[in-house]
Structures are given as C-alpha cells and as structure tokens.
Design a protein around this nucleic acid. Structure first.
Lengths: 338, 338
DNA sequence: CTGTTAGCGCATTCAT
DNA sequence: ATGAATGCGCTAACAG
C-alpha cells in the first residue's frame, strides 16, 4: 500500500554523490561545500526524501524521543503541562510519546514498558509515587527520568515542580490569617495521587487548637465539588471557608452554593488550587494558587534535551507557585463568624 | 551514560538457541515448541530484554506509530479526543505521537514533516482545512490520513466526526422553535478553524426574515465569552438568547451575566456547544450540544489499526451529536420578548 | 571536501 | 522445530 519512500542511495544516485555526503548534509555536517549541499538539498526536495528514522535510530542508538506518562490529559493542569513539553521538545526536533496511566502504578508500568519498547530515551513521570518495579526498570536500563509536578528536596530522584505540602499549608495559613477557624478542605481521590496526599498533609500540619478543619474526598470534577459542598451544607456547623485542592472542585462549589442561594464570599469563602485560565473570570473571581504547569513542562523538557545532547545532569528544580488573591475569600476578622 | 541494553543475541547465547528462535517467540510465531518458548521468555525476563524498536522498524518497515496533530490540547474536547486515541492505540500496542499546530496550517505542515520523519504510519488530522502541501506530501508518500471532528459526505478524504454546519443549524432551529427571534452567536476565531466557520455558516443558513441574528467573534476562552457578553449587554436591543459555539464561551457568558445581575434563563437564554463534563453542573444546567469527542478518537484509532493491520480502508464515518436540553434555555413563546 | 566500508539489532527467507 | 545467512537504511570511522 505504501509507496517505497526515497532512500539515501536514491539521492546519491540522483546527485552523483556518495551516500556519505548525503548523510552529511542531512545531518548538517560542516565538511560539505555549499554547492554540493545545495545540490543535495534540491535533490531531496525533488525526490521527496526524508531520512528513515528507524535506520537513523538504529545507527546512532538515539531516537530523539522522550516519553511522558501522566494520570490524565483531561485536566487542564496536565494538558498545559504536556503542551509545555511538546512545544519545547518539538522546537529541538525531539518528539513526545505520551501515555495515560489513570493514576494507576500498574498501568504506568505497562505504559513505560511500551514506551521503552518504542525507544524513548527519557521518561517524564508525574508525581512522586511509582511502582518500585518501574523505577527499577528505568534504573537497570539506565534510562534517565524525572518526577514532575512535585518538588522534594529529599528525593533521591530529580523532582521538578512545586512543594504541594507547603503550598497547602500556605493556603490554610492564609485563610487563618483572615480569621477563618472552621475550614472544609475538598480534594480528589487520595488513592494513587501522592500530590493530593501531600497537600492534605500540608494542610493538616496547620491544624491548630482553635481551628476546626474537615476533609472531604470526592471525585476530581465539577460534579465532585458540587456534591461535596452540598454535603457540607446539609450539616449544622457550616464552615466559613472551603479550600479546594483544584479549581475544578471550586467551580463545583460555586455552582452548589449558587443553587443553595449562598453568596461568595459573604456567606462562604472559597479558595481553589491551580489557577486555571478561567479562574480570574468567575463571579466572584476565584482566589487560588497559581501552579506553573506549562512552565514545569518546558523546564523538564529543556533539561532532558540538555541531558541527552550534552550530558548535563537532571537537576531537581523548585518552581514558584503562589497564592493569587482575588475576590472569593473574605476577611472575617472581628466579625461574628470568627 | 546509557547501559547497553540486552540484545537478541544475548538471549540467544543465554538459552543456547539461535537468534531466529528468539525472534520467533518475541513475535508470537507458531513454530516454536512450548518448552523452548518458555525457556526464551524466562531468559528475556532475566536479561531484561526488550526488542530494539528501531531495528524492528527497520527490518519490518513498520513503526506501529500513528500521529495526531491537533490545534490545541488545552481544550477539553481535544483532550478527550486525544485520550480516546491513546487508549485505543495503546491497547493494540501502537503508540501515539502528537503534535500541536495552534491551528496554523504552516505549523501543521512542519509538524507533519517531523512526525513523518519519526516514522508515523498514519495521520490523524483535525478539521477539514489543511495546507495543500500537507495533503500533497501525505499522498505522495502514500501515508494514510483522516480528517476528524468533521464529517463531510462530499469530502474526497475520509472524514470522521459530526456535521458542524448541521448541528449549528439545529441549535438555531431549536432556539427559534422556543420563540427566540433575537439571537447572538458567540464563537471563537474564524481564522484557522474551519469547524467554527462551518458552524457559523450552518447558523446563518437559518437566518430567516423575522429573526435577528448577530455574530460575535472572540477568543475561545472563558474570558472571551465574558467579554463578548458584556459587549452585548452594552447595546440597546438585547437578544433573548445567546448561542455559544463552545461551552467554554458559555461559561464566560454565565459569569458575565451573573456580574450584570441578569438571570439565566429568565433574563436571557444561553446555549453551549461541546457538552463538557461540567455542563450539567452549572447553575442553571447548561443546554448544549453533545459532541462525541472521545468516541471520535476511539473510532479513528480503531480504523487506523484495522487499516494498518488488515488493509481495511479508512471510511468516512458520521457520529451522532445531539442537543442536550437542560435548564439554560427558556421557552418564550407567547411572552413579550418574542 | 568526498568516497568506501563496516556495522547498528532485528525479521526473514531458505535450509535442515 | 530450529539455525544460518541476508539485508533493512543509515551513520561514523577511516581513507584519500
């Protein structure tokens, strides 16, 4: 079915040169006269020649391919992350092969095997928790990898991202500083998400005497957020603030509160996590934590390129993430609610 | 830096068999005794052997890789689409290489070259409009490709998706049938999106005498939707309904209307396009058009596998998309507003 | 600056 | 059921 694509020797024949010369111009070698180069390029154009990647990879033992495994692509944070990776990679003529693990270490391991079998030269993993078998496999085969969307100074592997725990703690501190003493934290599934777990622990670390903090686990979706808040409203002691570990959850809370006829932030403060594009547009604008998702993607991709090309080591990198104060959290110091 | 990974001949040595036999078991050939197979498999395990994909691709002239080029991954519809592709492909041990074109035919062409150079055996394109050079390139090299998220019976290439024009027309009809005579249509950039253009034309085709229909082009984002609706509100003759060619835009309209103190659907009806996960959770729940994004992804991936494995032709396929009636559109027949 | 040649790791005849 | 030998298209080392 497929036409035999032009091979290097066709171009050689066409130009009357040797395949070595063709190879040199295809690889931008210095040692080619401008005229020859020109002649070769034209012939390539004419013959529609593109070097066979498999042959090239076989010969050089390099595939110019890096793999990324993410739990889901259907969450903007990961979409942006992937987008950042793809941009950076493709600018250097690297390719991205992607797999989706659904947050399951077993699926992740299987995906990694496949991507290894595809010739991926580096692995971008998400989060800190992975199957030991996976880490082992990667190490045995000496395939470089990095853990992303997390930053952990103590990790033995390169981690590139932010400190989930510290950020969550910071969020709680912020709410506390504004007089909130009854806080509900809504988060996605704990299983298979070390990032969520880290956030939860970070928040819990700020659980002081005078404060009541409750955690609700729900689906990581608008629906989940909405369900969670309606459960909260059904009880007697309403919180003054709800902290969502994702803007998506916060959006669900917005809708749930609207349905209940409650106003934000007058009746309840709401805080998110992610700073998705639309967070500044909600009514009222959502106070949240800005996560540099695309930036992480770009940073990790750049590191891999530098590592693959120049042997530069992969370094743990802490990227800034910070609270974006907007209008959904109210200062209730001195008011009754405190 | 990288450890020399086990080669087939290592396994041969380890088992005392020939590389041909190893190759046979790796490829599931029939002609291997069960004991031998077992022995080989164990050795592979022990040596951590994985066939070299480049060598395999070179030898078979097959890469088990299909390419997808999408305008953006940062839109749920495309994220779902990609997710559907990846799932289906990976279940059959195919891999997805992805590139992002930002809706620019030139970038798309460049990406396609790169992916071709990666050995992609099939191309999944988005939308109907592409650089002639791209189509030409793909055809000259006899690389199969399909156009997705669109369906056009008249296209000379396989199209897999829905009929954007008809759907938009249906939306307008629906609004009309409920008594709406002043409709504003908000849509994303027309440039580089034939899908948006098709929808616009579909809507326009229903522009009858008694109806006033206005089109507003804005950014395809919540912000864009919000801006657009505030422009609308600034004018005198308010529409009774606004039709957004994306749920994302509709969400912006929700926030804009909330800010203006207007209620949905009492003061204005709002209709979306996409049926994103959260559409059913908005307050009020959003009436929209359900697009089978993930299903398209699965369908097109399955077709490619069938084509690549068995030579089955790629077929244009029309997938159902339909209006999902919820609470954001009001029946105003007989009321003053009509 | 250009040509010759030897593999890269595997699938695949063709033998046996 | 298994083995030996060939070539896939290319890069890189070496010659010139």
């Amino acid at each position: 079915m497929s036409n035999p694509p032009g091979r290097i020797r066709d171009v050689a024949k066409e130009t009357g040169l040797s395949i070595a010369t063709i190879s040199r111009v295809m690889n931008g070698s210095k040692n080619v006269s401008p005229q020859t180069r020109q002649r070769v390029l034209e012939a390539c154009e004419r013959l529609d020649y593109l070097p066979n990647p498999a042959a090239r990879a076989l010969s050089t033992a390099k595939s110019r391919t890096v793999a990324a495994i993410i739990p889901t692509i259907e969450h903007s944070v990961f979409a942006k992350f992937i987008s950042g990776i793809e941009n950076t990679l493709s600018a250097q003529d690297y390719s991205l092969v992607m797999a989706i693990s659904n947050g399951d270490p077993e699926e992740e391991l299987a995906a990694a095997r496949k991507l290894l079998g595809m010739g991926a030269e580096g692995f971008i993993l998400s989060g800190a928790a992975h199957s030991p078998a996976l880490l082992d496999l990667l190490e045995r085969r000496r395939v470089p990898f990095a853990l992303t969307s997390v930053w952990d100074a103590k990790s033995t592997h390169p981690t590139i991202g932010y400190d989930n725990s510290a950020l969550a703690a910071e969020a709680v501190d912020y709410l506390s500083s504004l007089g909130h003493r009854r806080i509900v934290v809504i988060h996605g599934p704990l299983s298979n998400s070390d990032r969520t777990l880290a956030r939860r622990e970070g928040a819990q670390s700020r659980h002081s005497g005078g404060t009541k903090m409750t955690f609700i686990e729900t689906d990581l979706s608008v629906t989940g957020g909405r369900k969670a808040i309606s459960d909260v409203l059904a009880k007697d002691d309403r919180p003054t603030a709800v902290l969502c570990f994702s803007d998506v959850l916060a959006l669900g809370v917005y809708f749930g509160l609207a349905e209940a006829g409650l106003r934000i932030p007058e009746d309840m403060s709401v805080m998110g996590f992610d700073n998705l594009d639309w967070a500044k547009e909600t009514h009222p604008a959502l106070t949240t934590i800005n996560l540099p998702a695309a930036q992480i993607g770009r940073a990790v991709a750049a590191q891999f390129i530098d590592h693959l090309e120049n042997g530069a080591p992969l370094r743990s990198t802490h990227l800034e993430a910070a609270i974006v104060q907007r209008a959904s959290v109210k200062d209730i110091r001195g008011s009754d609610a405190g």
